[in-house]
Nucleic acid binder design. Structure first.
Length: 128
DNA sequence: TCCTTGACTCAGA
DNA sequence: CTCTGAGCCAAGG
């Protein structure tokens, strides 16, 4: 039997769609604001880890503001030498302020999330 | 197919 | 406040 095959193929396309949903949501984050991986994950319905994986796989040139997604501690999660400085530059240019320890003040820069209208149009439950 | 490696988080010390 | 360990899950070798 090819049970393995029929089980993995659909799963693959579902993953691809999940990534698209993540990118669509990230595109809603306005300049000067930041969201956490967990925040994104909570909305699209996946783990924070997967949200991070999706960011790592973000295709260039598709308008996905990947730089606006940081970790729950308010810091850039990218490891030094892998583009962390670039992310810092981009956020800096948008007006996001970092404290001396390299952390963002969520009270000031955290994205409140997409509006109910967007949620509704994209198949989410605005009430949840 | 097994094993390793992460752009994560949370709870506990 | 910082540091660990465990739970997580997908991709690539």
């Amino acid at each position: 039997m090819q049970t393995e095959r029929v089980r993995t193929e659909p799963a693959r396309t579902e993953r691809a769609r999940l990534f698209e949903r993540i990118y669509a949501l990230v595109r809603q984050i306005p300049p000067g604001r930041v969201a956490t991986y967990g925040q994104i994950a909570g909305i699209v319905g996946c783990t924070a880890r997967v949200a991070g994986y999706a960011m790592a796989a973000t295709p260039d040139g598709e308008g996905v503001p990947w730089q606006r997604v940081i970790n729950s501690r308010g810091e850039i999660s990218l490891r030094p030498g892998d583009g962390a400085s670039r992310q810092r530059e981009l956020l800096d240019a948008e007006g996001v302020r970092f404290n001396p320890a390299g952390r963002v003040d969520f009270g000031e820069s955290r994205w409140a999330g997409p509006g109910w209208e967007w949620l509704e149009q994209n198949g989410y439950d605005p009430g949840a």
